[in-house]
């Protein structure tokens, strides 16, 4: 594919990493992770407290908020 390209790029010209495709996956996994982890904890609380799902709902919302916050802090400027 890039056979024409000279095989050695200058090492260490600058230590900058360009924006990468891994970022999208990280963002998605933070969002889903936040919802699943805190929603799951909320579900457990529901299970033991005998409530009908209020804590799972609160947990999912809180988890999403945490995920968004993490995306902003880790991936944002």
């Amino acid at each position: 594919m890039t056979g024409q390209e000279p095989p050695s790029k200058p090492h260490g010209d600058d230590g900058q990493n360009p924006p990468d495709t891994g970022m999208g996956m990280t963002a998605v996994s933070y969002l889903l992770g936040g919802m699943l982890v805190w929603g799951g904890i909320g579900w457990l609380v529901d299970h033991y407290a005998g409530t009908k799902g209020i804590f799972a709902g609160i947990g999912a919302v809180v988890g999403i908020a945490g995920g968004v916050y993490l995306i902003v802090r880790r991936l944002g400027a």
């Binding site: 990280t26 996994s29 992770g33 805190w38 809180v62 945490g66 995920g67 916050y69 993490l70």
Partner: peptide
Amino acid sequence: PLLIPIEFFS
């Protein structure tokens, strides 16, 4: 405490 579980999970 809110963020560390999310970080661990993801």
